[in-house]
Structure formats: structure tokens, C-alpha cells
Lab assay of single mutants.
Amino acid sequence: MKVIFLKDVKGKGKKGEIKNVPDGYARNFLFKKGLAIEATPANLKELE
């Protein structure tokens, strides 16, 4: 799953980066803790 990092996550990504991460990791950790959001076309446009 492609995500946009909202905060730095040690060993995974830095704020503003767009990366592919495992689906479970994104849903169960990154999204729940507010560390990242899904890289949807709308979210990507908002980032620019």
C-alpha cells in the first residue's frame, strides 16, 4: 500500500515521503497512530 508519511518513522520514512509499505503495517500501526495517510489521488494533490 502506498502511504504518505505525516511524521518521521525511524527506519521506514520521513515526513512528506511517499512509500510502499505492507497493508497490515499501514492499517494497524501507521494509520492508527496518525503517522501516515493512504496515498490516494486526492491526498497526493493536497500534498503538492
Results as ranks from 00 to 15, higher is better:
Glu48Arg: 05
Ile37Ala: 08
Glu38Lys: 09
Val21Glu: 03
Gly34Ile: 03
Gly34Gln: 09
Glu48Met: 14
Leu30Lys: 00
Gly16Pro: 00
Ala26Trp: 08
Pro41Arg: 09
Phe5Val: 00
Lys19Met: 08
Ile18Gln: 04
Phe29Met: 08
Lys12Thr: 11
Lys33Trp: 15
Asp23Ile: 15
Ala42Tyr: 09
Lys2Asp: 10
Pro22Thr: 09
Ile18His: 04
Asn43Lys: 06
Phe5Tyr: 08
Gly13Asn: 04
Lys32Gln: 09
Leu6Pro: 00
Gly13Asp: 02
Ala26His: 04
Phe29His: 11
Gly13Arg: 01
Lys15Glu: 06
Phe5Ile: 01
Glu17Thr: 07
Ala36His: 00
Glu38Ser: 08
Lys33Phe: 15
Lys15Ile: 09
Gly34Asp: 05
Lys10Val: 12
Glu48Gln: 14
Asp23Phe: 15
Asn20Arg: 13
Ala42Asp: 15
Asp8Asn: 12
Ala36Ser: 02
Lys15Arg: 14
Gly13His: 11
Pro22Val: 06
Val3Ser: 00
Glu46Thr: 13
Ala42Lys: 12
Phe5Met: 03
Tyr25Lys: 05
Lys45Glu: 12
Leu44Glu: 06
Gly13Ala: 13
Leu44Thr: 07
Val3Lys: 00
Asn20Trp: 15
Ala36Leu: 01
Ile37Trp: 06
Lys45Trp: 10
Lys33Ile: 08
Leu44His: 06
Phe31Ile: 14
Val9His: 02
Lys19Pro: 01
Leu35Thr: 02
Phe5Glu: 00
Glu46Leu: 13
Glu46Trp: 15
Ala42Gln: 14
Asn20Val: 15
Phe5Gly: 01
Lys33Val: 09
Gly24Pro: 10
Met1Ala: 05
Tyr25His: 04
Phe31Arg: 01
Lys33His: 15
Leu35Asn: 01
Lys19Ile: 11
Ile4His: 02
Glu38Met: 12
Gly24His: 14
Gly13Val: 05
Glu46Ala: 15
Ile37Glu: 05
Asp23Trp: 13
Asn43Gln: 08
Met1Arg: 08
Tyr25Asn: 04
Asp8Trp: 07
Leu35Ser: 03
Met1Ile: 15
Lys7Thr: 13
Leu35Asp: 02
Asp23Glu: 15
Arg27Thr: 10
Leu30Asn: 00
Phe31Leu: 12
Lys7Met: 12
Leu44Trp: 07
Ala39His: 06
Leu6Trp: 02
Lys32Asp: 06
